[in-house]
Amino acid sequence: MPTHADFTRAFRAGLFTGTLPPGTTAQAPDEATQRFAVYRNNVAHSLTRALARRFPVVERLVGVEFFTAMARLYIEAYPPASPRLFLWGEGFARFLQGFPPVRSLPYLPDVSRLEWQRGIAYHAADMPSVTPADLALAAADPARFKLVLHPSVGLIRSRHAVVTIWQANQPGAVQTGPLRADRAEDALILRDRADQVPVIALSPGEAGFQSALMRGETLLEAATRAEGADPARLLSLLMRAGAITGIAQQG
């Protein structure tokens, strides 16, 4: 008789191959295959929906039917490694990059990165923000201070119009004519004080400044990456959102 470890291994394999695990039967034994299919469907359907909840714009861009077929392949190759399903899908962008049927949608991997980062932001730890006075002190001596940002803060720099594409594919978005996907856009993601996770378009200079802040450069160093953009707009946006959680001294 197979051990329970043998049984579960065969069951796990059968979820994808359809081969019945040892001993599988039913009151009417010839129905065993159809009945086992309930488990196969439950696993495939529940994981597909979990992936779609995480990447709703990707699903919208390729269509539900295509997404479902693609998700089956992803699930089989990269099933979740934990019951914490919000940690599943980090490799989806890389999967999309190497998936020939979506080659005609070159922006898709970056759109998925943006959606992944929004999920990270949603579940990120809570941290109190600094006061405007703290920030003013740091800004008065920018060579000395760098900022500590909220763990929800992320930056997606793309050669594609990821912000425009994301916004145009939100529920209730109004289409205002064709959009150009081949324009570079940078997206700042964070969870704000109202627990919303907006996607904020940054100019290239602002994205350079933001990227430098995230690398831990001082305010002065970071400002040199702003390419003429005004760092003050971004700093006040971060401040309003509660995204600056500490001021650290250089060195």
């Binding site: 579960t8 069951f11 796990r12 488990y39 994981l47 099933p79 979740p80 490694a81 019951p83 399903l85």
Partner: peptide, 8 residues
């Protein structure tokens, strides 16, 4: 199952 979570 081992390192996989099957969500059912």
């Amino acid at each position: 199952h081992e390192t996989d979570y099957l969500n059912d």
